[in-house]
Simulated assay, not measured.
Amino acid sequence: LNEKQFVRFSMPYSKGWKIFVDGKETKSYRCDIAFIGTFVDSGNHSVVLKYSTPFLNTGLITSFAGLAILVVLCFYLKSRRKENE
C-alpha cells in the first residue's frame, strides 16, 4: 500500500474473526453492512484472518453436563425400578 488504507475482506462479519497484520492482532470493523475489514498502514504486510467459533467451549461443557445428568438419571430410574419389583 502506498498509504494507510482501510482493507475490506469478502468474509461475512462475525465476532469470531480475528485479523492479524504482521503477526499482531488488529481491531476489526464491520463494513458494507455484512463484511469485515481493518486499517492497514502503508508498505508491504502479511495479513492473516483466523476464525474461532464463539461460545464453542461453553456449548461443549453444557452438552457434556447435560449428557452426564441424563446418564445418571437413567441409572437412578433403573435402580428404583428394580427396587419396586
Rank of each mutant, 00 (worst) to 15 (best):
I19F: 07
K18E: 04
I19A: 13
T58F: 13
H45T: 07
V48T: 14
I61K: 12
N44D: 15
L70G: 03
Y76N: 07
L49K: 01
Y51T: 05
P54R: 06
S28N: 12
K4R: 06
K82S: 11
K78W: 01
L1S: 15
L60E: 09
L73A: 12
L56T: 02
L67S: 03
Y29P: 08
I19H: 03
L49Y: 01
R30K: 15
K15F: 02
D41H: 03
G16R: 08
F35V: 00
G43I: 00
V72E: 03
D22T: 13
Y51C: 03
N57C: 05
F64H: 04
E3V: 00
M11H: 14
I19Y: 04
S10G: 12
V21S: 02
T53S: 13
G59M: 06
I61R: 10
S14E: 13
N57Q: 13
K78N: 10
T26D: 07
C31P: 01
W17G: 02
V48H: 06
T26S: 09
G23P: 03
S63Y: 07
D41E: 14
L56I: 08
I61M: 09
S46Y: 12
S63M: 07
G23H: 08
K82I: 15
G59Y: 11
F35Y: 10
Y51S: 04
K4W: 00
K15V: 10
A34G: 11
Y76A: 13
L1W: 03
K15M: 06
R30Y: 03
A65M: 05
G66D: 01
S10F: 07
S52R: 12
G37K: 05
G23M: 06
T58V: 10
W17M: 01
Y51A: 09
K78S: 09
N44W: 11
V48W: 03
R8N: 02
F9D: 02
K24L: 04
N84I: 13
A65Y: 02
L70E: 01
V21P: 06
L49I: 06
G16Q: 10
E3A: 09
K78Y: 04
T26N: 09
Y13Q: 08
L56H: 02
Y13N: 12
T58E: 13
T26R: 15
F64Q: 07
D32L: 15
S52P: 00
L60W: 12
I33Y: 14
S14M: 08
K24N: 10
K50A: 13
H45Y: 02
C31L: 06
D32R: 07
D22N: 15
L60K: 15
R30L: 05
F75M: 07
L70M: 03
V71C: 00
K15Y: 01
P54L: 09
V48P: 01
R81Y: 14
L73D: 02
S79I: 09
V48S: 09
N2V: 08
K27S: 09
V21I: 15
T62F: 02
A65W: 01
E25H: 11
N44A: 15
T62V: 09
L49E: 03
